[in-house]
Simulated assay, not measured.
Amino acid sequence: MKIENNVASKALLDIDANIDKLVKQIELLSYVNPLNIEEEKQRFFASKYLTDPVFKYPNINFDRFKLHRKLFENDIERIEDEQIRKLYEDIIYQYSGLIECIENIGNGKRFYYDCLHCFGTPTERDVENAKFILHFEEEPSNEGIFEPKYSSEEAMTFFKDYSKRYDFDYKIESSDKISAIAMVLNNVQTLVLNSNYTYSDNEIAVLTNHEIGVHMVTTMNAQLHPLKIFSNGFPNNEETQEGLAVFAEYMSNNLTVKRLKELAYRVIAVDSLAKGYNFSKTFRLLHNQYDLNREKAFFITLRVHRGGGFTKDYLYLTGLKKVYDYYQQGKDLSLLLTGKVTLEYADDIENLISKGLALPSKHITDAYTVNSNTNKTVDFILRNLK
């Protein structure tokens, strides 16, 4: 690969490598998932939904103050390209914010305010969009595709079979220490399935396209670049990454009204944080007012209240709308698959590719090759979100 201006690029590559060494341990999801979910769920149910869970979290294995100091010691003035220098300035501030998030996990309001800085919170328009979705009827629940059938061990077979369409390898594990039903750990290229969960055919179809088709695809593409920021993440990449992942569900004809409503409930739950609701009040909002069964209400509430108030979950819906609109405008989705990148930095990605500092995507989300969606209600909803 030819890299323009070797002297200037060496400064950039040195700074990028230094940042990479510092932030490899900043995998927020590794720290924010409680260790005692099942025990606290049973205690919460036994209290008739009145006593908030008391969650325990993994120990942090890095020196937070030292990490902050070394991040800001990077002499980004050595980066001659003004556009790239501004990108790295944004990146350093973003990583600093994530360190603060990790530092304050379990510290209530402090963690919540750090999350506001990193992820924001739903606007009034976002809440209106969520309520708009909740007006639609779900698909009939008696359809066999929604019936829980598969343990995490059985589900692994489906993921391994689906993954044969991609030219990469990754690890797959199960755990009872995650709040999601599945998640990709980017730093260790591992898919983790929730060992306490029983999966339906629809969930297998959704998760293979979501977790492998996008999250693992972007993990693997990111490793091919000279610059490690594609692996460690551009600023605010969560919205784009989750939007791409849910859009893969849509393109593969697996996005249902039922699933969209789940994303809408997450927005409602995050909005409850801004209103000052505690865990039990958010749970009762979902369980009593919105008539969610107690298991679903608990896990949506858990996702949002873990750490002290984790606001990221509202971004699935906003990200989906942005990626849907981007696709409808005829823009190149493969540009957003180059790594853990952000739609708003598309020009920066193109600039880095043009200078030989990044590569076009090698692995392309299988679902993106043809639009297989036939769900007209889902199409109507996505077109009409504000």
Rank of each mutant, 00 (worst) to 15 (best):
178 I>T: 02
277 Y>D: 10
325 D>L: 13
86 K>C: 05
248 A>N: 02
122 P>W: 11
178 I>V: 14
378 V>N: 00
104 N>F: 14
86 K>Y: 13
6 N>G: 07
304 V>I: 11
141 S>E: 14
31 Y>H: 01
380 F>R: 04
378 V>T: 00
16 D>A: 05
363 H>L: 15
139 E>R: 13
380 F>S: 00
116 L>I: 15
310 F>Q: 02
375 N>P: 03
363 H>Q: 09
358 A>G: 04
271 D>Q: 12
153 E>L: 14
235 P>N: 10
41 K>Q: 10
372 S>D: 01
372 S>L: 14
165 R>F: 12
232 N>A: 03
69 R>T: 06
169 D>N: 15
135 H>W: 09
187 N>V: 04
92 I>R: 01
31 Y>E: 00
235 P>H: 08
146 F>V: 05
14 D>E: 13
160 K>W: 04
126 D>C: 13
178 I>F: 11
345 Y>G: 04
247 F>V: 01
18 N>E: 04
286 L>A: 06
25 Q>K: 11
62 F>V: 03
65 F>Q: 03
8 A>M: 04
210 H>D: 01
333 L>N: 10
297 A>K: 07
266 R>Y: 12
325 D>K: 15
116 L>R: 07
357 L>Y: 10
189 Q>N: 12
138 E>Y: 02
230 F>G: 00
205 A>C: 08
261 K>S: 10
102 I>S: 00
211 E>R: 01
95 Y>Q: 11
215 H>I: 15
175 S>H: 01
8 A>L: 03
141 S>F: 13
288 N>F: 13
322 K>W: 14
377 T>N: 14
235 P>F: 15
33 N>V: 06
116 L>C: 10
218 T>Q: 06
251 M>C: 11
359 L>A: 07
39 E>P: 00
316 Y>S: 03
250 Y>W: 02
67 L>H: 00
253 N>Y: 08
379 D>I: 04
82 E>H: 10
357 L>W: 13
168 F>C: 11
53 P>Q: 06
353 I>N: 03
386 K>F: 14
377 T>H: 06
153 E>Y: 09
355 K>V: 08
209 N>K: 09
271 D>P: 10
170 Y>P: 08
161 D>F: 07
268 I>A: 07
10 K>A: 06
191 L>A: 07
183 M>I: 15
321 K>Y: 12
173 E>Q: 08
174 S>N: 11
355 K>G: 10
324 Y>H: 08
309 G>R: 13
305 H>E: 00
353 I>S: 07
174 S>L: 02
20 D>V: 03
340 K>S: 11
140 P>E: 14
115 C>S: 11
375 N>H: 07
211 E>V: 05
299 F>Q: 01
209 N>F: 09
43 R>C: 06
282 T>D: 00
115 C>R: 00
66 K>A: 12
235 P>A: 13
43 R>M: 12
365 T>N: 01
39 E>L: 03
20 D>F: 10
256 T>I: 06
166 Y>P: 07
154 E>W: 06
3 I>T: 03
154 E>A: 07
20 D>Q: 07
96 S>W: 08
183 M>L: 09
372 S>F: 05
333 L>I: 12
104 N>K: 13
200 S>Q: 05
185 L>A: 05
79 I>L: 08
316 Y>H: 01
216 M>P: 01
381 I>S: 04
314 Y>G: 05
63 D>G: 05
340 K>L: 06
27 E>I: 15
